[in-house]
Each structure stands twice: as C-alpha cells, then as structure tokens.
Amino acid sequence: MEPTYTIIIADDHPLFRNALFQSVHMAISGANLLEADSLSSLLGLLEKSEEPDLILLDLKMPGANGMSGLIQLRADHPDIPIVVISASEEASIVSQVKMHGAFGFIPKSSDMKVLIGALNQVLDGEPYFPIELMSDDATYSDLAEKIATLTPQQYKVLGMLSDGLLNKQIAYDLNVSEATIKAHMTAIFRKLGVKNRTQAVILLNEASE
C-alpha cells in the first residue's frame, strides 16, 4: 500500500493555488492536501495539525517579506521539507533559497512533467534545484551565507530597516523595546561585517537582486 502524504500548498494567488492543487493530485494519488493563503494561516495550520510531509511555499504572500517566511519556517519547523515555488527565477534567488534551508525550488513556469518529477524526487528524499538556475558566484555565496546566519527576528528587523523605518517605528511594529532593537542591530552588523544601517541595507539589496 502506497504511503499517504500530507502536503501544504502556501500561495496567496487563488488561481495558481488551485492549479497547483490539481497538479499535486495528479502527481501523488491519495495525497492529503491543505491550503494556506498567507504566512499566518500557514503557521496556524502547522499548529493545529500534525507536521506535513512537505510544504510548497510561495516567497511572496501576506506576512512574508522575501526570505522571511522561509527563515521563520526553518527556525520553527526544522524537520519539515520546504520546496519554494516562485515566479522569481533568478539564479541569486535560487541560491538564497537553498542557503536558507529549502529542500528544493520549482519555477512557476515549469510544465506539468517537470513539476510532477520534482515533487516525486523531493518526496523520495532527494532535493530538487534546477541546474540551469544555480549560481556559482562565490561572492554571492559568501553574502548569502552571512545573511543566512541571521535569526528570523533579525532578518525581519533588517527588512524593516530596508523599508526606511526608524528604530522607534520598528520597536513599535514588533511590540518590543528600542533597546531590544538596538541589540538586534548590533548583532546584525556583526554578522554581516558592516558598521552601519546603510551598509547593512546595501548588502540585503545585493543579496536580493
């Protein structure tokens, strides 16, 4: 008897989520499929149900800013394989996704045959990253490694810095003290090897290009 897999599809676009739902059903007969349209609804699902066998994660949905959703999921649920499905197909994005612990990357432009093959490969325990999208840029890898050392909260603070928010505004939005934000800043600067917020934001932007 074939195993029954529980898979969560996390994407805020209803049409794509439905198409992916149908594709996964075709790829894996009898799969138990759950859906989430935001990071908060995904985290809610993970709290209420047993850990799934796989999460298919879109990088851009409510509550997730770039890599922040992936980073938070990896920190909170390190044992769940996460495959990113994204319309952003730049080599730098794929490298960053891999650096942050994703088990695979499937471009949204993939045809059905590629998608089914990738899903089966991942469920067999083998990571899936398209070779043609992998970057061998050593400089980028070094940068991605530095950013990967940030905690989910530090990454969130860095993202808010990039949006131009002041310490006071970040503290208010995250419901913590300014002293806590300053401590995060010190840790972020140390890990990234920079001296100020401008340099930190420049590094983040370089990694996101």
Results as ranks from 00 to 15, higher is better:
Ile9Phe: 09
His13Leu: 09
Leu15Gln: 12
Phe16Asp: 06
Arg17Pro: 04
Arg17Tyr: 07
Phe21His: 15
Phe21Gln: 14
Phe21Glu: 15
Gln22Lys: 13
Ser23Cys: 10
Ser23Asn: 07
Val24His: 03
Met26Leu: 13
Ser29Thr: 15
Gly30Glu: 03
Leu33Glu: 07
Leu34Ala: 14
Glu35Arg: 15
Ala36Gly: 03
Leu39Cys: 00
Leu39Arg: 00
Ser41Ala: 13
Leu42Gln: 02
Leu43Cys: 02
Gly44Asn: 13
Gly44Asp: 10
Gly44Phe: 00
Leu45Ile: 05
Glu47Gln: 14
Lys48Ala: 13
Ser49Cys: 08
Glu50Asp: 12
Glu50Lys: 07
Glu51Asn: 08
Pro52Glu: 04
Ile55Trp: 02
Ile55Arg: 04
Ile55Ser: 01
Leu57Gly: 05
Leu57Phe: 01
Leu57Val: 02
Leu57Lys: 01
Asp58Ile: 05
Met61Gly: 04
Pro62Gly: 10
Gly63Arg: 07
Gly63Gln: 04
Asn65His: 06
Met67Pro: 01
Ser68Cys: 00
Gly69Trp: 01
Ile71Arg: 09
Ile71Asn: 00
Arg74Met: 04
His77Ala: 04
Pro78Trp: 09
Val83Met: 10
Val83Ile: 11
Ile85Pro: 01
Ile85Cys: 06
Ser88Asn: 12
Ser88Cys: 05
Ser92Asn: 15
Ser92Lys: 15
Ser92Pro: 12
Ser95Asn: 15
Gln96Met: 15
Gln96Ile: 08
Val97Gly: 06
Lys98Ala: 14
His100Trp: 09
His100Ala: 13
Ala102Lys: 09
Phe103Leu: 06
Gly104Val: 02
Ile106Lys: 06
Ile106Ser: 02
Pro107Val: 08
Lys108Asp: 01
Ser109Glu: 10
Ser109Phe: 03
Ser109Lys: 11
Ser109Leu: 08
Ser110Glu: 08
Asp111Gly: 12
Met112Trp: 05
Met112Tyr: 08
Lys113Ile: 13
Ile116Thr: 10
Gly117Asn: 12
Asn120Ala: 05
Gln121Glu: 07
Gln121His: 12
Leu123Ile: 04
Asp124Lys: 11
Phe129His: 12
Pro130Ile: 09
Ile131His: 12
Ile131Gln: 15
Leu133Ser: 08
Met134Phe: 07
Ser135Cys: 12
Ser135Lys: 11
